[in-house]
């Protein structure tokens, strides 16, 4: 049962991932990406990591992708208005993704399949995750929060209008 769900979700994730690249319309690409995120959230649930799954949906599908869609809708990109890119770019794209693919295949081929039958753990539940985060990993957790704060301040600074220019 779990196996079948896993294969279905993997199929969905890979199909959606490919469609992100192959569809012509950027809005469709974004929607396929959202579908891929859902498939990955399904994988998290299979691993009993409910918190991760739902946060993945809230943050990626619910917030970041909405902003993507927001921008793309305003740009109104479609096949007619899309600027023609030189063939040189396509070459670079193919080579770079080929390199990335080789890297991944190489890395995963060497992977020892010890995690293939993971016991049903409760580590992904929010209570256990909270205990681990605030005991073992307090320092990294706090550092990440400072990093986020800095990013927030930086983005507000960039978005803010320059007073001198306005006057």
């Amino acid at each position: 049962m779990i196996d079948k769900v896993f294969y279905f979700l993997s199929f969905l994730a890979i199909l959606a991932g490919l469609m992100v690249v192959f569809t012509k319309n950027p809005v469709h690409s974004v929607l396929y990406l959202i579908l891929a995120f859902f498939a990955i959230a399904g994988h998290y649930i299979l691993l009993n990591a409910q918190f991760l799954a739902v946060v993945h949906i809230i943050v990626y599908a619910g917030a970041i992708m909405v902003l993507f869609l927001f921008v793309i809708m305003f740009l109104n990109l479609n096949a007619e208005t899309e600027p023609q890119k030189p063939i040189f770019y396509k070459f670079i794209g193919v080579i770079l993704s080929g390199v990335l693919l080789t890297l991944f295949v190489g890395a995963f081929r060497k992977l020892d399949p010890i995690y293939s039958d993971l016991p049903q753990t409760d580590i992904g539940l929010i209570k256990n995750l909270g205990i681990v985060l605030f005991n073992e990993f307090t320092l990294p957790f706090e550092i990440i929060s400072i990093l986020l704060l800095a990013a927030m301040v930086g983005s507000i600074l960039i978005a803010k209008k320059d007073k001198a220019v306005v006057e």
């Binding site: 409910q50 739902v54 946060v55 949906i57 599908a61 619910g62 909405v66 927001f70 929010i126």
Partner: peptide, 25 residues
């Protein structure tokens, strides 16, 4: 009775906007 009940609500609420956005576009 999911133990992430409240977060589930937020997940669904945050997806609610897609219907309006996609339809409008």
């Amino acid at each position: 009775d999911v133990n992430i009940g409240l977060l589930y609500i937020f997940g669904v609420v945050s997806l609610g906007v897609y219907g309006v956005m996609i339809g409008g576009w």
